[in-house]
């Protein structure tokens, strides 16, 4: 995806493990587009890792996108977890909103 604000890199391996790495910013102006783009990549994925480690800005509109993607993955019988540095603001936001336990990956959940 090439939005002036955010860009998404997708990597799918043979086992159906998908990594979606989002860089840039997600706000209300591009949330829908980001969500649409990610859903497209997740079609063949069983396990999805959403890497938000390089996101520069994300707000509640972005968090709604993450929740929507989690729901999408589970509805399709897959899994999704978010990868973000434990001391970063993304992790903090997930914690504030109570989404952390549900979304963060096992390796970072602690």
């Amino acid at each position: 995806m090439t939005d002036s604000l955010a860009s998404i890199r997708a990597a799918l391996d043979r086992d159906g493990d998908l990594t979606l790495a989002i860089t840039g910013e997600i706000d209300v102006s591009n949330a829908e587009a980001v969500q649409r783009e990610c859903v497209k990549h997740m079609e063949d994925a069983r396990r999805t890792t959403l890497d938000l480690g390089d996101v520069r800005y994300i707000d509640s509109a972005g968090l709604r996108v993450v929740v929507a993607l989690w729901q999408h993955a589970h509805a399709a019988g897959g899994t999704l977890h978010v990868a973000a540095p434990g001391d970063g603001f993304v992790a903090e936001l997930l914690a504030i909103t109570g989404l952390g336990e549900q979304l963060l990956g096992p390796e970072r959940a602690g």
């Binding site: 707000d59 509640s60 968090l63 709604r64 929740v67 929507a68 729901q71 903090e92 936001l93 914690a95 504030i96 909103t97 989404l99």
Partner: peptide
């Protein structure tokens, strides 16, 4: 609004 109401929560949390 699924997962809605995050905005105010985020502000209050931060």
């Amino acid at each position: 609004d699924a997962g809605g109401g995050y905005g105010l929560r985020v502000m209050r949390g931060l």
